[in-house]
Design a protein around this nucleic acid. Sequence first.
DNA 1: CTGTATCCAGTTAGATACTG
DNA 2: CAGTATCTAACTGGATACAG
Lengths: 121, 121
Amino acid sequence: MDETTEVGRLGAEHRELLGQVLDKWSLEVLDRLCERPRRFNELRRAIPEVTQKSLTATLRRLERNGMVERDIVSTRPVGVEYRIAPLGKTLQDLIDALLQWSAARLPEVQRARDRFDAAEG
Amino acid sequence: MDETTEVGRLGAEHRELLGQVLDKWSLEVLDRLCERPRRFNELRRAIPEVTQKSLTATLRRLERNGMVERDIVSTRPVGVEYRIAPLGKTLQDLIDALLQWSAARLPEVQRARDRFDAAEG
DNA sequence: CTGTATCCAGTTAGATACTG
DNA sequence: CAGTATCTAACTGGATACAG
């Protein structure tokens, strides 16, 4: 296999999976559910910027991928509890590491952005 | 601080940063550049599904965030070499871990998807 | 070789209103 | 409480043509 035809080790399926699990809201939802199970509106309050529609879509996608489980509480009115699934639990350390990386490096990134924006003007 | 007002530990700035660094093509581009510097078309060949437009946009974004550096080679016609920046290097272990997680867990995820899709029909 | 520019179809996200 | 439905504005991505 020569260099000119060398292809990535990441197939489309892996890109799709990581895209569904690392997207805008999923990281934060999973992080929250790793702490403890949460109700729908509890998650909304914990992530104030997410809309109901986007949170619903995020939770469905995570459920479909086996990352979270959904528990219907038969009260009136009904409640729904979301909790981390075993498969989602395998992501916990990775998510923690990503959030810590972001917190640690954001200042450096900001300086890089300022340099870039100043140079291209 | 009571539970009803508790908010996430991830602010909008962190979500934006992770979004720019973990997006569809960035992971694979960074992974490739961690191995060694690459030319533009070399990256295109390594990631056959990416269009020129998207690869350009991805590289600009990564450059702006201090993740990659851009080196213009004054030949005719000109060449451009991209290489990982020190800040991008701090992501390498995380990226490796994500790719490995994806490779290890994809089969389980597929089974979860099949179950979900069968149940909701 | 490494881009930029343009057009355009398809997806996505917010706002709002409504339901079991 | 936990959604679904609808409309619409904004963004995204592919195709194509062209340029330094």
